[in-house]
């Protein structure tokens, strides 16, 4: 089925909103970071900076210019694809993001996959076995997943599964004895496979699993709860009763009618799940020494590395907007009523 003209307009409107939102977020981030009553030079030059050193730091980082000029220049550079240079690493922000995003992406993708498979599966199971012991256990587990703080869960998991039982390796992306595979995507598992380094792939995967599970815990809980209630709601619908009455198989009813109708609600939660992954990444990456964008953003905030803070904010904002955009489009695909509206 070709998308209707109305659906095309719907996508066009969302794309325009995407650009306006991104510009607004950059503006707000820039203003907020510059409102902090602190001097980046003093945060980066140690205890005894001389006036000449402070002046040089401000000059090199463009902090000697009036704020509106800095903002204007930032936008000009942004259009040119230049996010500035980090005051801490002295590397272009684009370079730093290029180094850190693949690490977070690898973590986020596996985490979302785990959350999706187990969250939707558990939710469906709980709904189909409503008020049974299985339902009770899964509801408790989902409650735990949603309510337990990520950092606590990460520490306990490290203690039990790495230190006590030795099932998983500790923090970091690879064992110290291993060497990172030749960089193609920046995702070690993918790059190791591309290079045919199976032992490195296995090592990278082992390091990836535990932080991904921790990061997935909250989303798993969230998805279980939403899927359960969405499926229960659909199962009460007349057409499901009709399908049962017609003698359709249970499998056909669940996957062909119930789950499909429940999908729009689940897709909404998947959008939220991406938000949870990005916020949770800050804590998980710190505890697991995972050199991703969460760790980079946190360190930039502490050091008042303004270009890096703005760069990370922009990236996260774009991810949010794109995910919401995809969710909106998926609504349209999954629910014809949205396209018509």
């Amino acid at each position: 089925m070709l998308p209707s003209r109305a659906f095309g307009r719907f996508i066009g409107r969302r794309l325009i909103a995407l650009v306006i939102l991104a510009v607004g977020i950059v503006f707000v981030t820039f203003v907020l970071t510059h409102m902090v009553p602190a001097n980046p030079a003093l945060a980066n030059l140690g205890q005894n900076p001389t006036p000449a050193e402070i002046k040089n730091f401000d000059r090199v980082n463009g902090l000697d210019k009036p704020l509106p000029v800095q903002l204007g220049l930032y936008f000009v550079h942004l259009v040119q694809g230049n996010l500035g240079t980090s005051e801490v690493t002295s590397d272009p922000i684009i370079h730093d993001l290029g180094q850190t995003i693949p690490a977070t992406a690898e973590l986020a993708i596996l985490s979302i996959l785990i959350a999706l498979v187990f969250g939707v599966g558990f939710g469906l199971l709980a709904a189909l076995r409503r008020n049974s012991f299985t339902d009770f256990v899964l509801r408790i587990l989902s409650l735990v997943g949603v309510s337990v703080p990520t950092f606590w869960l990460a520490l306990i998991a490290l203690y039990l599964l790495f230190f006590k039982l030795g099932i998983f390796p500790g923090g970091s992306r690879l064992s110290p004895s291993d060497v990172a595979p030749p960089r193609v995507t920046g995702m070690y598992t993918v790059d190791a496979l591309l290079a045919g380094q199976l032992s490195t792939f296995w090592d990278a995967l082992q390091h990836l699993v535990l932080p991904s599970i921790i990061l997935a815990a909250a989303n798993m809980g969230l998805l279980t709860r939403y899927t359960r209630s969405a499926v229960l709601e659909v199962m009460e619908q007349d057409y499901v009763r009709a399908a049962r009455a017609k003698g359709l198989s249970r499998r056909s009813i669940v996957f062909g009618h119930v789950l499909r109708a429940a999908l729009p609600s689940i897709v909404t939660v998947i959008g939220l799940a991406f938000a949870n992954v990005l916020t949770g990444a800050v804590l998980v990456e710190n505890i697991f020494s995972w050199p991703g964008i969460g760790q980079y953003g946190y360190q930039a905030s502490v050091a008042l590395d303004l270009p890096a803070i703005a760069g990370v904010s922009l990236f996260i904002a774009v991810v949010y907007i794109v995910i919401n955009f995809i969710v909106d489009v998926l609504y349209g695909v999954l629910d014809p009523r949205v396209r018509v509206q």
Binding site: A43, N44, L45, G46, Q47, N48, V88, F151, W152, L155, N286, I287, Q295, Y298, Q299, V302, A303, L304, D305
Partner: peptide
């Protein structure tokens, strides 16, 4: 390093609480 050296990466304090 003087006082505070470079404050980058001082997430240690948060981690220390959790420690």
């Amino acid at each position: 390093m003087g006082i505070f050296g470079n404050v980058t990466g001082r997430w240690m304090s948060g981690a220390a609480v959790a420690a």
